[in-house]
Amino acid sequence: MRRLVERIRRLSVSLWTLIVPPTVWAGHFLFSYLWAALNCAKAGRFATFPTLYVAGTVLALLLIAAAGAIATVQANTPGDPPPHEQSTDLDRLRFLAVATQLLAVLSAIGVVFTATPVAFLTDCR
C-alpha cells in the first residue's frame, strides 16, 4: 500500500491532469445529450430500463473517483507546514492536487445532477 502511495505521488501533474474530472463530466454530459437525442428524437422511444445510460454514468463516476483519489494522495504528500504558498515543487504539486480534488467533487456532483432526471422520468415526453 505504501509503495502504491509512493508511486501515485510520483505521477506527473499538469494542467492536463487538473482538467480530467471536469472533462469526464463534459464527456458524460455530451453522452447524456446524445443518448436522449438518439432515443427520443431519432428513435422516438425510451428503453424500459436505460442500461446503457446507467453504465455510462457509473463509468464516469468511477473515472472521477479515480482522479479524485490520486489527487487526494498527492495533496497529502508530507513536507513543510501550511500555508503551502511557496515557490517549491512540493507546494506546486499540492496546489494542483488540491484543485484537482475539488474539481473531482464538483464534477461528481455535476454527473449526479445530470443523471437524476433519468431516474425520475420514464419516457420522452
Binding site: 445529450y33 436522449a36 437525442a37 428524437a41 445530470t114 437524476t116 422520468l121 415526453r125
Partner: peptide, 9 residues
C-alpha cells in the same frame, strides 16, 4: 424532449 431539458436544467 423533456429529458433533454432536464439535463440542461
Amino acid at each position: 424532449p423533456k429529458i433533454s431539458l432536464a439535463f440542461f436544467s
